[in-house]
Structure formats: structure tokens, C-alpha cells
């Protein structure tokens, strides 16, 4: 078996998620090559060559790949990947964009967002936003798979010595072009990758009160989320929503403040390692999934939490 892993990067550094995808490739077994497609991405290729277990790094360095356009990456990966048994990429927004194109161009099914490898053709993945876990078997000759990075401990990023090979292949479909990008301005970590997330619900009463959570988040280096109820009530924008139709998070610590714990919210955070719930209603369903529950008025508890954290951090 031979596995092609598509590196996730920003043209200057290799994303940690790639090391988790290599770990998934190791679990499948076989020779592992990494394809780095980007523009002026030599440093990424060097980093990929040091990753544990990688045999060869293929580099496609061209302006056509600089913004990771799905059409161009799809054509490139479908062509480079057709002689491999597996093509793997992280299930981030880049991988989710181009990998289904690869699968369609190769006329094979894609297995999305796997969290475990059972065998070379059998994978475990959450469905219904994690409310059910499916084991699926792929029958196509090439397995196109996206990997949820939180499901696999990353391989070591140092110590490997893969060969690096430049590819002179330019795929420019001419269907799309990059216009602009707007990076999230906040210094706060992105919800999906934050190690700690603090979220507010309808109990926050209004958007201004989310400032209380910001102060705690700043102390912890946490991302800030919200329940759908808080979003629907107009307290905070949609992109903060954690839940089945929002972001799925699995941080080390999730603090739910004034969140009752509707099913659709639990679906988005119940894989968190440690869950804390602060709610004045002791019957709130959130307490059934919380490792530590505090029955209290959040308007007293959150400022106290800030003070206590200042003492210990």
C-alpha cells in the first residue's frame, strides 16, 4: 500500500494537523508520501521531510496553488494520487474544499472526517454531528479520506529525513481566482482549534454581558463560543455558535455558562475532555454531561471565576 498525504499549510509553516494525518496514514500502514502544494512553500516541504514516518515529499510550488483554490488542487491531487492506494488530507476548510473534487475526478467515494482507522479499507467516523458513530467500509480501489485531526495524536515533527522531489506540474483550471482574505482579527484562538473554550447561552441575557466571558477567556487564552439560543436571541454573531449546525469543538476544557444544554448544543461539544457547567438551574441537562457543575447565578460566579483564576494563573 502507498499513501499520499496532502499537507495543510500557509506557505510558510506546516500545520500541526498534517502530523495527525500522517499518524492516520501510519495506522493504515504502507509507504507514506506527502504532497506540499503551494507558492514559495519550500520551508513547508523541509518541515514535512522531518516528520516521522514520511518516505518522500513531493513539492508543487506554483502561483496556481498559492491560495489553495479547490479546482487547481483537485486537478493536481487527482493526477498525482491516482497511483496510490489512499489519499488523505486534514478535514479543515481546505481539505473539505478540494478532496471531494479529487474523489469525483477519480470516480471514487470519499470517506469524510474519520476519527479512527479499523483497517486499510474500514474507518470510523461521527455522523449526526457526533450523535452516532459509524464504521464504514470503502470498496473503491483508491480510498479518498479526510481526517479529523483531533482523532489522531500527531507524529513527531522532527527526526525524519524524507527525500524532497520537485514536481513540475501546473494545474490552473482558470475557473476561480483569489480576491481577498480577512484573517480573524482577534488574538483569541480559533474556536475549532482552541485548547480551552468558554461559551455563553441564553442566560447571558444580552450581548454586552459576553464581555465578562472575554475577561475570563483572556486569562485562559480561550476561544469564546455561544449556544444557538444566544445566537438566535441576537446576543452574538452566528460564527460563534457551537453545536450541531455551528462549530464542532473538542477542547481540553469547555466552560458552559448559562447554557441549559439543548441536544443540538451538546452535539457540538460533548467530545471535550473536561466540561464545566455554570447554571442557576440545577435541573439543566448540561449538568448531565459536565465533569464539574456549579449551581450558581452566573453574574456572581463569572466575576468570582475571574478573580480566582488571577490568583492561580
Amino acid at each position: 500500500m502507498s499513501i499520499l498525504v496532502i499537507a495543510e499549510h500557509d506557505n510558510s509553516s506546516l500545520k500541526q494537523a498534517t502530523l495527525s494525518v500522517v499518524a492516520a496514514a501510519k495506522a493504515i500502514g504502507g509507504d507514506i508520501d506527502v504532497l506540499v502544494a503551494g507558492e514559495n512553500c519550500g520551508a513547508v516541504a523541509e518541515a514535512a521531510a522531518k516528520a516521522e514516518g514520511v518516505a518522500k515529499v513531493l513539492v508543487a510550488d506554483n502561483a496556481a496553488y498559492g491560495h489553495f483554490l479547490g479546482e487547481n488542487l483537485g486537478d493536481l491531487v487527482a493526477e498525482q494520487g491516482k497511483n496510490y492506494s489512499h489519499i488523505l488530507a486534514a478535514a479543515g476548510t481546505t481539505g473539505k474544499d478540494f478532496m471531494p473534487r479529487v474523489a469525483a475526478l477519480l470516480d471514487v467515494a470519499q470517506v469524510s472526517d474519520i476519527i479512527r482507522v479499523e483497517s486499510e479499507d474500514t474507518f470510523v467516523r461521527p455522523i449526526y454531528a457526533g450523535n452516532a458513530i459509524a464504521t464504514v467500509k470503502a470498496s473503491d480501489s483508491i480510498k479518498v479520506v479526510t481526517v479529523r485531526p483531533t482523532g489522531f495524536d500527531p507524529v513527531a515533527g522532527e527526526g525524519g529525513s524524507a527525500s524532497v522531489e520537485q514536481l513540475d506540474v501546473v494545474k490552473d483550471a482558470g475557473l476561480s481566482s483569489f480576491v481577498s482574505e480577512q484573517k480573524a482579527e482577534s488574538d483569541r484562538p480559533d474556536l475549532a482549534s482552541a485548547g480551552i473554550v468558554i461559551s455563553g447561552g441564553r442566560g447571558m441575557q444580552n450581548g454586552d454581558n459576553f464581555k465578562m466571558l472575554e475577561q475570563v477567556a483572556d486569562l485562559l487564552g480561550a476561544g469564546i463560543g455561544a449556544s444557538r439560543a444566544a445566537v438566535d436571541a441576537g446576543f452574538v454573531p452566528n460564527d460563534m455558535q457551537v453545536g450541531q449546525t455551528g462549530k464542532i469543538v473538542a477542547p481540553q476544557l469547555y466552560i458552559a455558562v448559562g447554557i441549559s444544554g439543548a441536544i443540538q448544543h451538546l452535539a457540538g461539544m460533548s467530545d471535550s475532555k473536561v466540561i464545566v457547567a455554570i447554571n442557576k438551574d440545577e435541573e439543566a441537562p448540561i449538568f448531565q454531561v459536565a465533569d464539574y457543575g456549579l449551581v450558581a447565578d452566573l453574574f456572581e460566579a463569572v466575576p468570582q471565576l475571574e478573580e480566582e483564576l488571577k490568583k492561580v494563573l
Partner: peptide
């Protein structure tokens, strides 16, 4: 991931 991107 991490922001917004506009394509034509």
C-alpha cells in the same frame, strides 16, 4: 479556518 476568503 481562521477568517474569511473571497473568490471570484
Amino acid at each position: 479556518d481562521g477568517g474569511l476568503m473571497t473568490l471570484s
